[in-house]
Structures are given as C-alpha cells and as structure tokens.
C-alpha cells in the first residue's frame, strides 16, 4: 500500500521533472557509447556482430531485463545498418523471433540500409539452455564475429558465450542485472552495464527530456530510501522495528 503511494508520488514528480529536465545531465554509460565504436571495428574487419539477450524471456520474472536488452538491440541494429555489418541475434524464446525481427528490420531501415536485412539474422534454437549455449559457442568459434554482445537476463550460458568470445578474440560488451554473472563480465568484457544500469538503458538511449525526468525521479527515490535506511538503523538501535511497522501498514 505504502509502495503504491510512493510510486504514485514518484510518477507525478517525474512528470514535473520533465519540464525542467534540461537542467540535469545524465551520467554517461560507456557501454552504450561503445556500441558504435565496436560495430565500426566489425565493419573494418568485415566480420559479423553477434547479439543475444540471454535465456530469459518476457513471460516470466526476467521480463524487465529482456525488454531492456531488446531496446539496446534496436540501437545495435541501427549502428550495424549504418556500418553495413551483418548482425546475428540468437534467442531461445520463440515469441521473441517476430519481435526481434521487427526490431532489427526497423533498425536497418532507420539507418537507410534496408536491403541488408534478412529474416535469417534471427536464429531460434529451441527452448533449452544447453542447446542455446552450444549453438552460440559453435557460432562464435566457427564464424568468429568481431563483436559479441550480451545484454539481458543471463544464466550460466553467459560464461560459455563470453569464454568462447574471449578465445575467439571478440570485442565483448555485456550487461545484466543478474549479480552472479557480473564478475565474469567485469573480467572478460571490454565495456559493461552493471546491474540496474541495464534497466535504464532504454531511457538512456532515448535521451529525450521525458526520459531524463525518469532519471531524476529515480535518483530522488534512491535518496529517500537512503534516508529511510539510516532512519531504520537508528530506530532499530533504539529498539524499534521501523521497517516491520511500515510494511505492516
């Protein structure tokens, strides 16, 4: 209940922040800025780009991560279209096939290179994780793409795909809110989005005043929680369970 009110307040705040948005500047995301550069390298080497959103789909609790991954896919497709690079997207989720085909097509259209697009750029490998792993690993060492990107809900296939990428010498970009796989990405990725940065990537790519409002609202929300955190600690030192009280309310 409390949270519903908070969400409502945050929403109105964001709306008002939209109006004065130009005043704020968003921190830069190196991983998103590196997309163009990496695709450029792929064009120089005349090799494809491999992209995947991981095993997660949009029908379960991984939905937000996958949605963000798809948002980034749009930008990558655009960059690939501009540079004339072949993009391959591998997915283990059947319903993402039409979605991603549309995204990639739109990306290539936007960059004025619609002839390059083919439906074969999206490759479906069945719903199982191991099948997904093996075909991505095989693809990376067979075709040796110049760039390997993983943005989304990833489970262990990340290690295999990034490991194969490291051996094949790809430029690797990654991002996931799944904590267990972030350290691996820190070690072998050239650029990465840590944790929640992936969720906001969609807004960051948009870059309109509206989306900046979201960032501002989000930050204030965080500060509010930090204060609440300290209050909770003080309260529990004084022997009062503030969070228990609030969540029961």
């Amino acid at each position: 209940m409390l949270m519903v009110i908070c969400i409502g307040l945050a929403y109105f705040y964001m709306k008002s922040a939209e109006r004065k948005a130009p005043r704020y500047r968003i921190r830069k995301f190196p991983a998103l800025e590196a997309i163009e550069e990496a695709v450029g390298r792929a064009a120089e080497m005349n090799r494809p780009v491999h992209y995947t959103t991981g095993i997660g789909g949009t029908d379960d609790q991984y939905a937000p991560m996958t949605l963000s991954g798809l948002a980034i896919l749009g930008r990558v497709a655009e960059a690939c279209g501009k540079a004339g690079v072949y993009l391959r997207y591998t997915t283990p989720r059947a319903y993402l096939v039409p979605v991603s085909q549309d995204i990639i097509k739109a990306g290539y259209m936007k960059s004025g290179n619609p002839d390059m697009y083919s439906p074969d750029m999206v490759y479906y490998v069945g719903e199982y994780q191991t099948a997904f792993m093996t075909s991505v690993m095989g693809y990376i060492l067979r075709e040796r793409p110049a760039v390997n990107m993983i943005f989304g809900a990833t489970l262990w296939e990340t290690i295999n795909q990034l490991g194969a990428g490291a051996i094949a010498g790809c430029i690797q970009l990654g991002g996931t809110p799944r904590l267990y796989y972030i350290p691996i990405m820190i070690c072998v990725c050239d650029y990465l989005l840590i944790g929640e940065e992936l969720y906001v990537a969609g807004a960051a790519l948009e870059g309109t005043p509206g989306s900046i409002g979201y960032f501002r609202g989000q930050d204030l929300y965080k500060i509010l929680l930090i204060i609440l955190f300290i209050l909770a600690a003080v309260a529990s030192t004084a022997g009062f369970n503030l969070i228990g009280y609030l969540s029961a309310w």
Partner: peptide, 16 residues
C-alpha cells in the same frame, strides 16, 4: 544493488 534494481524496475515498469 538489489534496492537500486528494484527502483529501476519500477521506473521501467512505469515507462512500459
């Protein structure tokens, strides 16, 4: 990190 992700998820949800 978890709290931050929770907040970002709410924001993403609203955007969606």
């Amino acid at each position: 990190i978890l709290i931050g992700m929770g907040i970002s998820m709410i924001v993403l949800f609203m955007r969606a």
